Simulated scan of single mutants.
Amino acid sequence: MDRLARFEAHRPRLLGLAYRLLGEASEAEDVVQETYLRWDAATGVEMPEAWLTKVVTNLCLNRLTSARARRETYTGPWLPEPVFTDRGELGPLETAEQRDTLSLGMLVLLERLTPPERAAFVLREAFGYSHREIGEILDRDEAHVRQLCRRARQHVGEGRKRFPASPEDRRRITERFLAAAVEGDVPALERLLAADVVAWSDGGGKVTAARRPVSGRDKVARYLTGLARDPRMAAMTVEPRWVNGECGVVIRQSGTLFAVLVPEPGEDGLVALHTMLNPDKLTFAGSQKA
Score class of each variant (00 low, 15 high):
Gly88Glu: 09
Pro231Phe: 00
Arg252Trp: 03
Trp78Tyr: 10
His131Val: 07
Gly159His: 08
Glu158Val: 11
Leu102Ala: 06
Val31Cys: 05
Arg6Phe: 01
Arg63Phe: 08
Ala180Phe: 04
Glu142Met: 12
Thr256Met: 06
Ala285Tyr: 03
Arg176Gly: 11
Arg191Ser: 14
Ala290Gly: 13
Glu133Tyr: 05
Thr73Lys: 15
Val56Pro: 04
Asn244Gly: 13
Arg212Cys: 03
Trp200Lys: 02
Arg63Cys: 05
Arg222Ser: 08
Val207His: 09
Arg38Ala: 12
His274Thr: 08
Tyr19Phe: 13
Glu239Arg: 15
Cys149Lys: 10
Pro92Arg: 15
Ile173Asp: 13
Val156Glu: 04
Gly245Asn: 05
Leu52Pro: 00
Arg112Glu: 12
Glu97Cys: 05
Phe121His: 11
Arg217Ile: 01
Phe127Ile: 08
Tyr19Trp: 06
Ala42Lys: 01
Ala235Trp: 14
Glu136Ile: 09
Leu102Phe: 06
Arg153Glu: 15
Gly135His: 02
Ala152Ser: 09
Leu4Tyr: 06
Thr53Pro: 09
Val55Pro: 00
Ser103Gly: 13
Pro265Glu: 02
Ala285Gly: 01
Ala290Trp: 12
Ala194Thr: 07
Ser130Asn: 10
Arg3Asn: 11
Arg241Gly: 06
Gly269Trp: 01
Asn62Lys: 15
Gly245Lys: 01
Glu111Val: 02
Tyr74Asn: 10
Tyr223His: 10
Met233Val: 09
Tyr36Gln: 03
Ala67Thr: 12
Pro80Ala: 02
Arg170Cys: 11
Ala126His: 06
Asn278Ala: 14
Gly266Leu: 02
Val122Gly: 06
Ala67Ser: 14
Cys247Gly: 01
Leu273Ile: 11
Thr57Ser: 13
Thr65Arg: 15
Lys289Tyr: 13
Val243Cys: 09
Arg132Gln: 13
Ala290Met: 14
Pro80Leu: 02
Val243Phe: 11
Ala259Gln: 07
Pro265Val: 00
Arg153Met: 09
Lys161Gln: 15
Gly91Leu: 04
His131Ser: 10
Val271Asn: 03
Gln33Ser: 13
